[in-house]
Design a protein around this nucleic acid. Structure first.
Lengths: 196, 196
DNA sequence: TGTAGCATGTAAGCCGTTACATGATTGA
DNA sequence: TCAATCATGTAACGGCTTACATGCTACA
């Protein structure tokens, strides 16, 4: 069992994701980190449950990748604040430079349901796509908000880059889903059973 | 605890995905189902582990959503073959028509790593994107293969539709990642530390 | 005064993976 | 004959979720 150049080697990607958010600077509480994660990570990674954020922070703390302190300044309610440590930064950089990149994993319910279109009336599939389009709209608006907040500040250049990638992706999805929906309308098959 | 119009209500989506594959007709062994899942589902859902395929099949069988029989015809090695049952078809249709569609979940390592570009030399990020582009190429070729095999047969209209959606998506990703990579080259920041 | 939001956790449990184990058949 | 592939599982475990539990603070 060979050890390679780090003792952390195999934290789950979500740990690196959260650690990565902390690398942007400010000390955060678990609660704040969760907000951040929802509005950023959530779009192209995963929005971890509140409880998991705390679990991760505890682990990162135990490993020395973050530092924490009790923040009980007057006029603020007491909370534990976490900050990335030097070891944490080093480990993040190691991860970024040394570990091979994985291919994205997509769980796409709309695609799965479209695949099974032969089982239901074409209207069911069309409505499903319409529902997806509405959700895309909402998400796009939320992401646009995020992107706007990032502004043109060089500090947030990369997050902005990612946000725009996401916006373009949502646009692509909307275009494609709409096209498919209209193709469904065209080639409406005969009314009889058409399963199997 | 109100029961709604089915006793199956909440199977995990992966169960429906596998059940859905079985809805295309032929009796399959667990092994064959896994092949199918890898080459189809894998692109926009998830490629379940072999062991999970068997676990799912056992569960679906217990619930009566599939039927199985020992296939020991001469000249073939013995295997258990699974076939969707009437109850299974009904439940699939119920799921498709009644349950609300979820928004896709994306785990996109390339986006996550791009987000953290401030931590490493720009070349690390550029190489990461190049690696992603190469993987996209491979995947695209494999998916193209799948799509070609589906042909123009009306029976596989929906799978073909999904496959083309996937191809278009890969093209979009390749275009976008390449653009970002070239933008990175342009705005190469000064050589000094630029973290935090 | 009460509710919404801030803040932090624990417990149980499911989903899904990796590792392990086994054996038959095909074809080079 | 030997390796690859077909074929089927079990065991252990990690990741992550939901449900549960608790309490403080701002503000309407």
């Amino acid at each position: 069992m060979p050890r390679e150049s780090s003792e952390f080697q195999d934290l789950p990607p979500t740990s690196y994701a959260l650690l990565g958010l902390l690398s942007f600077g400010p000390e955060l509480t678990g609660y704040e980190l969760k907000q951040w994660a929802d509005s950023t990570l959530g779009f192209y990674w995963v929005a971890p449950a509140m409880s998991q954020v705390y679990t991760e922070l505890t682990r990162l703390d135990r490993l020395g990748l973050v530092e924490s302190r009790e923040d009980s300044r007057a006029g603020r309610r007491p909370a534990r604040r976490y900050k990335i440590s030097t070891a944490g930064l080093t480990e993040l950089r190691r991860w970024l430079t040394e570990t091979p990149i994985e291919f994205p994993v997509l769980k796409h319910p709309a695609a799965l349901r479209l695949l099974l279109g032969h089982l239901v009336d074409v209207d069911v599939t069309r409505q499903m796509l319409d529902g997806y389009l509405r959700q895309l709209d909402e998400r796009r608006a939320a992401l646009q908000q995020v992107r706007d907040n990032l502004g043109a500040d060089a500090q947030y250049r990369f997050p902005a880059e990612v946000a725009e990638w996401g916006l373009a992706y949502y646009d692509f999805e909307a275009r494609t889903a709409a096209e498919i929906a209209s193709r469904l309308a065209d080639a409406d098959p005969p009314t009889a059973d058409h399963e199997q």
